[in-house]
Design a protein around this nucleic acid. Structure first.
Lengths: 356, 356
DNA sequence: CATCAAGATGTAATCGATTACAAAGATCGA
DNA sequence: TCGATCTTTGTAATCGATTACATCTTGATG
């Protein structure tokens, strides 16, 4: 096992390559960035010197001079959220194609982390910002916007002329969820919330209420359980549900995880899904197709959303559009699976029991 | 709706602040980076000017001058992998504390993407590299190492003196998984693989074989199903399993997802877990506690792993250690849950049936 | 062959900070 | 008050590229 002493290798600068090729630094630079501007012969000479020396341009110097960092900041609510991960894949696909890199801004659901990323943006370490969270506060967003930095909001809509929104139709889908359950005969509803205070949660709850109203029901009829976008929120909701004497028959969960947590808990107490209670989720995460029974839910077009957001940001950075020019609202797809079914009326239910 | 014409705001440079405060740029710089070096009065004067002008230092210029980018590259196999996401959280915690940022290198399981990130590293956009993947090829790793860039390997061990390894004890845990099943009386084993060719997979399969040997069994006794680290690999394995006449009774899956896929599929054909077949997973993802039945598995200390890896990289960057000085191998924790149980011998099984 | 335009290359300013070194100012004891 | 010493501040070089402008080649054309 040879143990050479560690030591930094001397850096090769553009001047070294120029000397090696017998040309000026300007020529080397031109060969690398705009080859048509130099004679073929010189081009080959320089490339050979580049190859021999193993030169790689110092991107920091390039950035300083060109004022383009080729990086964008992606602010995320929580890294372990699968919805976020899938969106990020779409973002990554698009940005990589354009030669941009991703700097991760992970809030980890703690608002105090925002300041750090606002600073990052303001110190011009990035050419643009993608907000995958509804958490950046009004004044943080404002100072970023005022600095002229391109921003795209991919959380639920931010109401700001200067910030294009690329979002999914949360509100519409939530309303449709209720309508769907109502069409199956459900009249008593439960709502399992997402992280209280987040824009996404309020959009989804808003849509849910619209659906309730559209079905001609009063808000007094509904039950609402609060908690963040995680499994255990559904489990807690189930505990409460199990205590009730007049149970709702139609449950809308603001995310698939809580829907799954709910179902698992109630089934362990011999409550049948969908015979005793119908559950509809939101997101369409991969797992929702692997539960027992498979989950009825709305699939978010996350990959597409990520690409669309990144594409919009690219357009903004390249000044191919102005902020007000563009808003995208992608539709969700209802996946009718096995956790929803028609309401079984009491008599029908006993009838059915008798025949089994 | 007012629509002002969009226009970049003029940048404020350190010279502007200096002029505003009536001092030199050197003084402003000192106030910001080493306040003890200036008189209190000057300090206040400068800070007031900073505040009034809304100055934020241009970090690109700082980087060029100080030769520190305060960014590290994290190379990941696939963003949507929950194991990766959880590790990244640990990395993020540690790096944020040290003021470092994360640039994401997403391979998305495609090797051809490596080149891009090797370039990124070589062009000194980052101060160090964390490899969360076993995919960076030998020559990519070598050129990064030769450039003197600090690297830490957090995939399974890379055999290179110059690269510290911070890993979990994959091999040992896999061996223990077999031992555990053997102690429950199992003699016929099945192995559901992870992504063929990845270092992680070969470590886990290696450990599995060690366990088989330790149990005094021959390799002929085992069945091996191949596929990537995803649900569907387990489903496919289950299809094959269901066709068999002499089925294995002890299944080791190289990741929780495939274990869950397997269980779901066999249960839908009325195979009972753990009575008919015991299944043990690997990773300990959150979901493994929400399946029916709950999954016996090895929990990786992912958050800790992420922190340890990032900490090691920090030490390397600050030259507080040399690459050969340090290797970490974290143990895994066996979570004994409900998908494993003793082998039921035929006679015992019928006896048991009779009593029910 | 002279002239001129187009093309290729070189020179040096520039991006915006940090910091070595020089210069000026404060402090103190004799 | 004077110089010695220590603090504070300013001047200008520097990091490593890009690029406007100047200069030199080349080649075409009358």
């Amino acid at each position: 096992m040879s143990r050479k002493r560690w030591r930094a290798v001397k850096e090769i600068r553009i001047a070294d390559v120029a000397r090696l090729a017998g040309v000026s630094t300007a020529t080397v630079s031109r060969v690398l960035s705009d080859p048509d501007k130099v004679r073929q012969k010189t081009h080959d000479l320089v490339m050979e010197a580049v190859r021999r020396s193993g030169y790689t341009p110092n991107s920091t110097a390039q950035k300083l001079r060109t004022r383009r960092t080729m990086n964008v900041l992606v602010v995320a609510p929580r890294l372990t959220n699968p919805v976020f991960a899938e969106t990020l894949r779409g973002v990554d696909d698009e940005l990589t194609q354009s030669g941009y890199g991703i700097i991760i801004g992970n809030l980890d659901n703690r608002r105090e982390r925002e300041a750090r990323y606002v600073d990052l943006a303001l110190s011009r370490q990035v050419d643009g910002v993608l907000l995958l969270t509804g958490y950046i506060p009004e004044n943080g967003t404002r100072s970023m916007r005022e600095s002229g930095l391109p921003i795209v909001a991919m959380c639920a809509a931010i109401d700001d002329d200067m910030i294009p929104n690329v979002v999914v139709q949360d509100r519409e889908a939530s309303r449709r969820a209720v309508e769907y359950l109502a069409r199956l005969g459900h009249r008593k509803f439960g709502y399992i919330s997402g992280t209280p205070g987040s824009i996404i949660e309020s959009e989804r709850f808003g849509g849910f209420l619209e659906g309730i109203a559209a079905a001609g029901l009063s808000q007094d009829e509904i039950v609402r359980w609060e908690g963040p976008f995680v499994f255990s929120t559904g489990v807690a909701a189930a505990e409460s549900f199990l205590q009730m004497t007049e149970r709702p028959t139609g449950i809308f969960a603001a995310c698939d995880e809580s829907a799954i947590g709910f179902i698992k808990r109630v089934r362990s107490e011999r409550v049948r899904v969908p015979q005793d209670v119908s559950v509809i989720g939101f997101d369409g995460i991969e797992l929702s197709d692997y539960t027992e029974p498979t989950l009825t839910t709305f699939r978010q077009p996350l990959h597409e959303l990520g690409r669309a957001g990144a594409d919009t940001l690219m357009k903004l950075i390249r000044k191919e559009m102005k902020p007000g020019d563009w808003n995208v609202r992608l539709p969700l797809e209802l996946l009718e699976r096995d956790t929803t079914g028609p309401v079984l009326h009491k008599d029908y239910k006993s009838l059915r029991r008798a025949t089994i």
